[in-house]
Design a protein around this nucleic acid. Structure first.
Lengths: 144, 144
DNA sequence: ATTATTTTTGCAACATAGTTGCATTTTTAT
DNA sequence: ATAAAAATGCAACTATGTTGCAAAAATAAT
């Protein structure tokens, strides 16, 4: 995991690589993502960060991270929007998260199963495929 | 597709099979689903039905249909919730929609590709799978 | 067919989620 | 150290979803 300072350095580097200003909000939110073993939604961030920053700032920060390919959204069947940090292969203009997302019905956590590949899906004639999202629900390793 | 009256009879039968009272709202909303070739979200229903019924009634009707296995939700990466009618194999207690959902980036329509099966996905050790959701995005047959 | 019971609907009020404009503050560049 | 650019916080607003309760409609019983 690394020391507090190592994480700080890593986050700073990530922001600079993405040509983003290094601000307290961005640092703290990225830190939350790094620490968390699952995906976060807006409300998680507000809760876990205390009352330290404005709702609007959180919305804008998440949007910025999305734009830069630092985080990605995970599809859900409710109104929540879940975000997770992207693997290094993702970039601003070449965004792909071809891994399986797993939602645990017991603890509610959503995680990215980075090792688990998505098998080929053959669409009917006439359909062009750009992206595939897979969300598996069940019981995770920890809850079992 | 059938005449107006045939559709009405079909919908009435569907409601009675699900042990639901036959009401104007439920008839009209189910008719919208039947007519639509794609998934609908709450706002679509309110728009397409005119101002004829209350927001709250629409929410409650959709929830009822979900409970009875008449419709199912489709995962999205935004805050919208999309619904589509279930195939006949679905029932109240045995709900499964093991087909691929396709979201067209051009026309925005989400459709169920009932013929397209979801391939096996092997999860890491320790994970138990209950359900799989697949959403493919790209360009649909019509828009191509 | 009429009435009684149950269910559904619509309204009001509320709660949560997300957006926009603008002034102030912070960050970065000079 | 200062100027320019970017990010933040606040206020106000829009959209989305929920709950309780009384009125209306649908089903069941007589």
């Amino acid at each position: 995991m690394g020391t507090k300072q190592q994480i700080t350095e890593k986050i700073t580097a990530l922001l600079k690589d993405s040509k983003l200003s290094v601000t307290d909000t961005r640092m703290k939110i990225l830190e939350l993502f790094m620490k968390s073993n699952g995906a976060l939604e807006h409300s998680d961030i507000e809760t876990q960060a205390g009352q330290s920053f404005d709702r609007v700032t959180v919305y804008r920060t998440l949007q910025t991270f999305l734009d830069k390919g630092i985080i990605h959204k995970i599809p859900t069947t409710d109104t929540s929007v879940r975000y997770a940090v992207c693997k290094s292969e993702c970039s601003e203009h070449d965004h792909h998260d071809h891994h399986v997302h797993f939602k645990c019905e017991s603890c509610g956590t959503t995680t990215c199963l980075d090792e688990t590949n998505i098998p080929e899906i053959s669409l009917p004639k006439g359909y062009a495929m750009h992206n595939v999202e897979v969300v598996v629900s069940g019981v995770c390793k920890t809850c079992k």
